[in-house]
């Protein structure tokens, strides 16, 4: 599992004061919050749709995606545009700051539950900058399966 992140650069972002990481390979850009148009008949965690360079990009509210409590609006909020398997979405997060280099030795397999997050969404736990911890997201899981099934249910 964790080989995905071996010697990889990872973009760090915050959700409810917890730090998460997503491989820079999948990150297209990081945007400031902008006008997002609500879309009816979709999952509650789909915040809406925004546009970037002529493309339509659905935005996922990561708090709602992981059933976390909503946090207050701040000026730090960012939208991380990620792309994977022909799917491009924006992840709405509390803040996104820096990039870290992770070597395999820093990465451990995830315990069952981390910060209330199901293991399926997690690729591993990494230590960085001596005493800090971050959760490596399993982006594929975040973007596919559940949503696809749920959406199909809605259609039917």
């Amino acid at each position: 599992m964790s080989q995905l992140y071996q010697n990889k650069k990872v973009i760090l972002f915050e959700l409810n004061e917890e730090t998460y990481g997503v491989s820079i390979d999948h990150v297209v850009s990081i945007e400031r919050p902008q006008a997002i148009t609500r879309v009816p008949h979709v999952q509650a965690y789909v915040k809406g749709i925004m546009t970037m360079r002529g493309l339509m990009i659905p935005v996922i509210d990561m708090h709602k995606r992981f059933n976390m409590a909503e946090s207050l609006e701040t000026t730090e909020e960012r939208i991380i545009i990620v792309e994977m398997d022909d799917i491009m979405v924006g992840l709405f997060v509390d803040s996104a700051h820096h990039v870290v280099d992770l070597s395999p030795s820093q990465i451990e397999d995830a315990p069952d539950i981390v910060g209330g997050l199901e293991a399926a969404y997690i690729d591993g736990i990494a230590r960085y900058e001596e005493d800090k911890l971050l959760v490596l997201l399993n982006l594929k899981q975040v973007l596919t399966t559940n949503e696809v099934n749920d959406l199909k249910k809605i259609e039917a």
């Binding site: 148009t37 008949h41 979709v42 749709i49 925004m50 546009t51 799917i87 959406l151």
Partner: peptide
């Protein structure tokens, strides 16, 4: 514009467009 692969077949919506003020 298509809504993309993530939001396929949204009921009652065939696509999206970008308006003059940059909103969708």
């Amino acid at each position: 514009k298509s809504l993309g692969n993530y939001l396929k077949n949204v009921e009652g919506i065939s696509g999206a467009t970008i308006l003059g003020d940059g909103r969708v």
